[in-house]
């Protein structure tokens, strides 16, 4: 699916992650800022990418600012950002969740 507009979800508070999704042209590009990038950077990117794939988003720019979020939080925030970016927040695709 194509991203219709830039969207944001999450906060910058401890244990949360802020995900911003915008249009891209070269696949899924994740820019990640995290204090635990060294330890968990790959895992965080993997979670974000897999959620986007489940929405069939092929091209997107992702800006993520992580404050130590657990995987379930990363997943939840990415889902919300995707639904907003695809403008389907009113009629979520329950099957991908």
């Amino acid at each position: 699916m194509e991203i219709k507009r830039t969207a944001i979800a999450g906060t910058l508070e401890s244990s949360d992650i802020q995900i911003m999704l915008s249009k891209g042209t070269e696949g899924i590009q994740v820019t990640l800022k995290s204090d635990v990038e060294k330890q968990f950077g790959d895992q965080i990117r993997k979670v974000i990418t897999s959620v986007l794939k489940s929405f069939n988003i092929e091209n997107a720019k992702v800006t993520a600012v992580d404050k130590g979020a657990l995987d379930c939080v990363i997943k939840a925030r990415t889902i919300t950002a995707s639904q907003r970016a695809l403008e389907i927040a009113d009629s979520p695709e329950w099957e991908v969740l």
């Binding site: 944001i8 906060t11 910058l12 508070e13 802020q18």
Partner: peptide, 11 residues
């Protein structure tokens, strides 16, 4: 923590 809360809310 308050700083991050404020900036998140503004963003």
């Amino acid at each position: 923590s308050s700083f991050n809360t404020i900036v998140s809310e503004l963003i």
